[in-house]
Amino acid sequence: MKRLFMFLPLVVAVAIGIFLFTGLGKDPTELESALIGKPVPEFSLQALDDPDQTLGTSVLKGQVSLLNVWAEWCPSCWDEHEYLMHLANDKGVRIVGLNYKDTREKAFSFLNRLGNPYETIIFDPQGSLGFDLGVYGAPETYVIDAEGVVRFRHVGVVNQRVWEEELLPIINQAKGNS
């Protein structure tokens, strides 16, 4: 009986080892959004191309869409933009842009150079909507369903792998429900 106690440290060590093994390769800084399952927070911001037009959460309702947080100063946003163009033009995905902590001039120069995949662009120079969404670093892409509820958030560049493995399944799920 006493001998069995002697095996306890071994058992504990193996358990710890298993947990450490599962941790390998995971990115500990990748955070899931705190808003999953919750509606997009209320906001009242100008549209990028029309200062007189005010946008609110209604712009994200009606159909399943992607909300892409981007900025001219963000290097990875330049990388992913081509794929976003592909998604919007070839796959017909509705993408709403959130221009985060930028100036209008910079934003326009970016779009003029790389193209505009966005149906609408929310202009958020102070980053207030970004803050309320829990954005901590551009680029980030949210999947919003037809009711304006956040379904998923991806931090980082959107490319084919991310689209096929992460975003598309969620979009299909969201479409299936509504």
Binding site: R3, M6, F7, P9, L10, A13, V14, G17, L20, F21, L24, G25
Partner: peptide
């Protein structure tokens, strides 16, 4: 992760072998 797994294996072998020896 490649280095991590090698190290974990090293750690694992050392700890498991020594604690098994201890248990017995």
């Amino acid at each position: 992760p490649e280095r991590g797994s090698f190290l974990l294996m090293l750690l694992g072998i050392t700890v498991v072998a020594s604690l098994a020896l201890y248990a017995f």
